[in-house]
Design a binder for these strands. Sequence first.
DNA 1: CAGTATCCTTGCGGATACTG
DNA 2: CAGTATCCGCAAGGATACTG
Lengths: 131, 131
Amino acid sequence: MSKCMALLSGLWTPELVWCLSNGPRRFSELRRDNPTITAKVLTGRLRDLEARGVLERNVLATSPPSVEYALTSLGRELLPAITSIVEVGSRLLLREASGKASEGVQPEQANMRTAPKRPSQQRTDLDAQME
Amino acid sequence: MSKCMALLSGLWTPELVWCLSNGPRRFSELRRDNPTITAKVLTGRLRDLEARGVLERNVLATSPPSVEYALTSLGRELLPAITSIVEVGSRLLLREASGKASEGVQPEQANMRTAPKRPSQQRTDLDAQME
DNA sequence: CAGTATCCTTGCGGATACTG
DNA sequence: CAGTATCCGCAAGGATACTG
């Protein structure tokens, strides 16, 4: 679970995948796309993503040498997921900007002696979706 | 971009959302679901997610008092995205387990004097999808 | 039960300088 | 151009103890 989400962990990681979403891109191009990232961090993230199989590194024999980074097919499969998170995310951020409506306070029933027991949850509906 | 992905940032955050995916759950239940999380971190993540509008905190007037956490409607919209990332993630992890096939080495053409110029990329195909 | 309060460590990311 | 090498600060998490 966390292992899988760790695919996109690390600062700048989503941006980099995003930048590669419409074609390969070189090291210096990625630097220009994200002006405030440092070379060290950029190399780090690219190496991580390469190790995880999200992108491929391709050295071109130009002079001076240039290096291209491109999403793999599995890397490309992450794009829809990213967009949907961003979609929800921006709605959430908008909600924060305009004063948070409805601080809901419903008057729960009092005086029940013990709280209800629930099973310790082995399967979730998400597990079901997975198969 | 990173702001939106930060919704699910923080260790344990995806697990917690996952645990709430099939209904509300109490503090101690969440602790049992993730045996190695500490109370401090659990409270922290829950407060974060509440502030971000992903879940709601609901104090029940039982004795002893119990607190229920439940996903909001927007929180629930994150679930499909999470599952698709996990989907790709597990395929990636499998690939690592069984020796990584095809370390592709294609013989790129040499001796071109300069590398190709590409535009500095203002819009991506993902931006197009968003509208 | 559902948390706070404190302390302490690790490591991520930024800044800066240098290289094949 | 496409990186590596160091140093540093700080915040996120873990461990542990205590509370209404």
